[in-house]
Nucleic acid binder design. Structure first.
Length: 305
DNA sequence: ACCATTTGACCAAC
DNA sequence: GTTGGTCAAATGGT
């Protein structure tokens, strides 16, 4: 496939994604502006939003109807796929295998005891990988058809405690990025900034007797996040109940509000989070000194999986 | 009926 | 020829 054709496909997909997004926003606006403002024969806000929605619908309709022939019709590698499809019933597009193997340079790897990361993913494949004990699972963002290109691969790497190596590709462009942040942080941007940037965070997983300590390392802290994290780690290491299970620190990224002193406003960036994992050497979490854990951090900052 | 997952097919990259 | 990433029909769950 030529670079030109690839660019064309990417542009068209982005265009459709943006239009779908715009249509949704216009629909939300219509709901918000539901009270009629029409008087003196002027056009109401409702009329306007209805027109916007119709415009989006019409554009999408035109693009979708021409998409197959225009995008997949003019290039050798892809047209070979189209030719294969000629034997299939009308209207059925079989594009299996018509893709480029992705480069790993854009990827971000992370190790986690849970697959959950706050985003909505849809599984689209699973594969047995050579020399790997467990199959690799492939996920894409549920908002793929609205233009979000984020995908991830999940590879289970350890049985007990269960650990997953998660590789992320591309970034979320969907509104789910905001939702994901709000799952973890407070709705108040200042408070959430404190939670994420300046304070260490403890996640407990009672079912797997596992604890995770995370701390953002990027922002200049009001209170030294690193030293606070060291204190928590020392407390854990002093205790016979806990054992560090991931000696190399996890470096992952979260989408969180970051204060920009130049614009004097909060912006959302991917920021680095350093995490350590500990497993409980005891058989039961019931034996744990929860009051002791509460001393390490504010109870409100504890998240249960 | 709708939506998510499973699974075999397909093929680019190696 | 083999491996890994993606697609989409089939299947399952609600």
């Amino acid at each position: 496939m030529s670079i030109l054709s690839e660019t064309l496909i990417t542009k068209r997909k982005r265009l459709i994604g943006e239009l779908v997004k715009g249509k949704k926003i216009a629909a939300q606006l219509q709901t918000l502006l539901h009270k009629p403002l029409k008087n003196n024969g002027s056009v109401s806000a409702e009329d306007l939003t209805a027109k916007i929605l119709r415009s989006f619908t019409e554009t999408l309709s035109v693009l979708s109807s021409n998409e197959t022939s225009q995008i997949y019709g003019g290039d050798t590698a892809v047209s070979a796929c189209s030719e294969e499809s000629e034997n299939k019933p009308a209207g059925v597009k079989d594009l299996r295998g018509c893709y480029k193997r992705r480069r790993t340079s854009d990827s971000r790897k992370t190790v986690s005891p849970t697959m959950e990361d706050g985003y909505a993913w849809r599984k689209y494949g699973q594969k047995n990988i050579l020399n790997k004990e467990y199959p690799r699972c492939y996920y894409r963002c549920t908002h793929k058809y609205e233009g979000c290109k984020a995908t991830k691969q999940v590879q289970r790497i350890k049985e007990d405690p269960i650990l997953y190596q998660i590789t992320y590709f591309d970034h979320h462009t969907c509104t789910d990025a905001m939702t994901a942040t709000q799952i973890i942080v407070d709705s108040d941007p200042v408070k959430s900034l404190n939670l994420f940037s300046f304070e260490s965070k403890i996640l407990l997983n009672p079912s797997r007797s596992m604890i995770k300590i995370s701390s953002s390392a990027k922002e200049e802290p009001k209170q030294d996040a690193h030293s606070e994290m060291s204190d928590i780690k020392s407390s854990l290491e002093d205790s016979n109940l806990w054992q560090e299970i991931v000696p190399v620190k996890q470096k992952s990224f979260v989408h969180a509000p970051v204060w920009d002193p130049k614009t004097r406003s909060y912006d959302h960036h991917d920021q680095e989070v350093v995490s350590s994992f500990y497993s409980c050497t005891s058989n039961s979490m019931n034996e744990l000194d929860m009051e002791g854990i509460n001393q390490w951090c504010d109870i409100e900052n504890i998240h249960f999986d």
